[in-house]
Amino acid sequence: MTQDLFRTLQKTVKENWKQYVLAVISVAVFIAAWHLYASYLREIDSGYKGYIPYPMDVAEALVDSFQYEDPNTGLTMSDHIGASLERIILGFLIAMVVAVPLGLLMGTFRTVDAVGRPIVELVRPIPPLAWIPIFIVVLGMLWGPVAIVALGIFFPVLLNVMFGVRSVEPTLMDAAKTLGAGRGQMFLKVVLPFTTPYLMTGVKVGLGIGWMCIVAAEMVGNYGGGVGFFIKDTADVGEFEYMYAGMIVIGLLGIFTTGVAGFIETRLSRWMGMK
């Protein structure tokens, strides 16, 4: 399995080497521009020069954060990542457990849809971040952030599953019927497999939102640390090199998780023969 993965990776890199080179160049240009701006601010002794540290200092802080144990909390960046990951995974599981069955039900049965729709449409536009203070007070500092993440992941998954169910081609349903399938079997053997790639799309989108939620939630109240906590903590005392380092960590984690989800999504679609 790992050999396959490695070979696929090699293949992808070989096929897309031009894109990768361009990506590296663009990142390098960005860093150079950042460095120049930071220099400029120091030249003119701007009041906020400390808020734009040199890229090198951020890189140093990034490395340091993994090695250095904070004297007050006893945590390193690895610990923070672990804490945030824990909450995201928990929130993710909760969201999936509720959203998938609900999405399947709402997509299939008009009555369930009629009951659920108004609530969904009312709550959906509210950004999960708005709920943070309430959730943390009502649910506490462990389940508050987890609930925020769950809320953030819930809607994309729910809507994509619903959409998937509704998108099942009617002829496939007809074919299943003429092959003797009853409602239950149609659901298990046609609707479910058909919806899976849509589900993965929802997961991919949801995970992106989930990271944003966990960072914001951790800034409001927490225990056990977390990358969001780290960012707020370092920003509060003005250690901006570390703050940026924390932001980079979030960015990378986000890319990684959504990348994995996207990879699974493409694989699944291909296997389903739908791409």
Partner: peptide, 19 residues
């Protein structure tokens, strides 16, 4: 003794709820 961080404005509610 354990500590947690939270905004001052939420502390009263957290104390009341036993959090």
């Amino acid at each position: 003794v354990y500590f947690v961080t939270m905004g001052v404005t939420t502390m009263n509610a957290a104390l009341a709820s036993g959090e």
